[in-house]
């Protein structure tokens, strides 16, 4: 098992994930210090050494995503919807996102409002793989999908025009916003039923502040769901040691492996929010070449995983 998908579109093909991941990161965080695996778990908001809270991040004017990341995704725009292109692993993962959300929603009797008419906020929607699919579900009322890259949003909009069922501009709305620039709902009850952060949090410089902000968009009873990759020996070996030290394809010490977030750290963050959040749901997934993504119990400890938490207050 190895953490393959840091972000699907970066992979040219499943067999060569490391180079791609490492190469991209090399340009994006040149100033980062050397990183080596620490078995110590960090706390997203309290431990100073691993403090990710940016002083200004709570203000609506700043952005959680840096420009290099944005331009990187923009470069991938053209191939986003090519089923055999670099985004294939993401396309294959998408059904699991729905399975996971369904598991989350059905775990809490309180969220089973009937008739189900769910409102989604998809943060970092990219070309719209998840946003489109959520908009197609009969149980969906609306999908608001935001991304900081205008180029990728142009791809998302152009693609959504191919399907009349999506109701582009009505049921499915794309906004060129960051979570910081998007106005917070006027009252908690006006928040979204599902706020999704798929393969996003590992691109964020200050995850705790970012999650603080995102949490305000979830209505009480609603769910925050995300997927990311654990920061472990395995992911360090595959993305740091091999790519940087052994293959020397990336300047040493420039890897942002340290931005990876472990499931326990996320748990710690939500536990520390004074009873705002319920008990998290977790599902570890592993990419099996030729078969696609499979749920593997316990694999959240080493690689890609889904994490969902209900806002209870």
């Amino acid at each position: 098992m190895r953490p393959l998908l840091r972000h699907g579109p970066r992979l040219s093909r499943p067999a060569r994930p490391l180079w791609r991941t490492a190469a991209r990161v090399a340009q994006s965080t040149p100033a980062a210090g050397p990183c080596r695996p620490s078995q110590r778990s960090r706390q997203l908001s309290t431990t100073p050494a691993l403090q990710h809270t940016h002083p200004a991040s709570a203000s609506a004017s700043s952005s959680s995503v840096n420009e290099t990341e944005i331009s990187h995704f923009s470069a991938l725009a053209a191939s986003w919807w090519d089923p055999h292109g670099p985004s294939r692993p993401l396309h294959l993962m998408n059904p699991l996102r729905h399975d996971f959300i369904r598991t989350c929603l059905s775990s809490s009797p309180s969220s089973s409002s009937s008739p189900p008419a769910l409102r989604y906020l998809d943060v970092g929607c990219g070309g719209g793989i998840f946003a489109e699919s959520a908009a197609r579900l009969p149980s969906t009322l609306s999908v608001t999908a935001i991304d900081p890259s205008p180029t990728i949003l142009a791809v998302a909009r152009a693609h959504a025009r191919r399907d009349p069922a999506l109701g582009l501009g009505k049921k499915l709305v794309y906004l060129n916003e960051t979570i910081e620039s998007l106005p917070v709902p006027e009252s908690p009850a006006e928040g979204f039923d599902v706020v999704s952060l798929f393969e996003v949090i590992e691109h964020v410089d200050y995850p705790a502040a970012f999650l603080d902000r995102v949490g305000q968009f979830v209505r009480p009873g609603g769910w925050l769901v995300l997927s990311t990759i654990a920061r472990t020996w395995t992911s360090w070996v595959t993305t740091n040691l091999v790519a940087e030290d052994l293959l020397g394809m990336v300047p040493k010490g420039t890897h942002d492996w340290n931005k990876y977030i472990n499931e326990r750290e996320l748990r710690g963050y939500f536990d520390g929010q004074d009873g705002v959040w319920g008990v998290p749901m977790v599902m570890g997934v592993v990419y099996v070449p030729g078969l696609g993504w499979k749920e593997v119990r316990g694999s959240e400890e080493v690689g890609n995983y889904f994490f969902g938490v209900q806002r209870v207050a």
């Binding site: 089923p83 396309h91 998408n94 059904p95 729905h98 399975d99 489109e132 699919s133 959520a134 908009a135 197609r136 579900l137 969906t140 399907d163």
Partner: peptide, 14 residues
């Protein structure tokens, strides 16, 4: 059925 229940476009090769 699988495609519909996962919000996929049933027409695409994927």
């Amino acid at each position: 059925e699988y495609a519909v229940s996962h919000g996929q476009d049933i027409g695409v090769t994927m």
